[in-house]
């Protein structure tokens, strides 16, 4: 349980607000966060940067054989979203009645992702929702 708390705590900014990294030197943005810029190597000057949460569907798939944590919600859609800022991010895509296809514009929503059993932590996370 202690491990779950620490791991969750470290990721809160990324999970709630899509906070990634930006290299101050070349302007390249990353999600998830990383310490070293692929372009600048040892000269990296990395800053935390909140992504807009808007992007387009780069690829998507319907999950019918889910992981244990998501067994109640199958079938559900996951996708790779190309953010406006450039990084590609994996995420759940919420069914809001709109068709999901490559190129569909999406934005983030704040949702419950899974819980650590009946008494453990509730893990909140961004998901994507078609606009």
């Amino acid at each position: 349980m202690e491990k779950a708390s620490a791991g969750m705590w470290r990721k809160i900014d990324s999970r709630y607000n899509l906070v990634g990294s930006m290299c101050e030197r070349c302007g390249t943005k990353y999600f998830p966060q990383r310490a070293i810029c692929r372009n600048c190597g040892k000269d990296t000057k990395m800053l935390h940067r909140k992504m807009s949460g808007r992007g387009t569907v780069y690829s998507h798939s319907e999950i019918r054989v889910p992981a244990e944590a998501f067994k109640e919600s199958a079938p559900y859609t996951v996708g790779i979203i190309e953010l406006e800022e450039g990084p590609k991010v994996e995420g759940h895509i919420i069914d809001n009645g709109k068709k999901v296809e490559i190129g569909t514009k999406v934005k983030t929503a704040f949702r419950k992702m899974y819980t650590d059993g009946e008494e453990g932590l509730i893990h909140y996370h961004f998901k994507f929702i078609p606009e």
């Binding site: 919600s73 919420i94 704040f110 949702r111 419950k112 509730i122 909140y124």
Partner: peptide, 16 residues
Amino acid sequence: PSMDEDAATIAVEAAR
């Protein structure tokens, strides 16, 4: 609410 919505997610969306 959807299965992934609760009073916290609703509060966050309203506050945003």
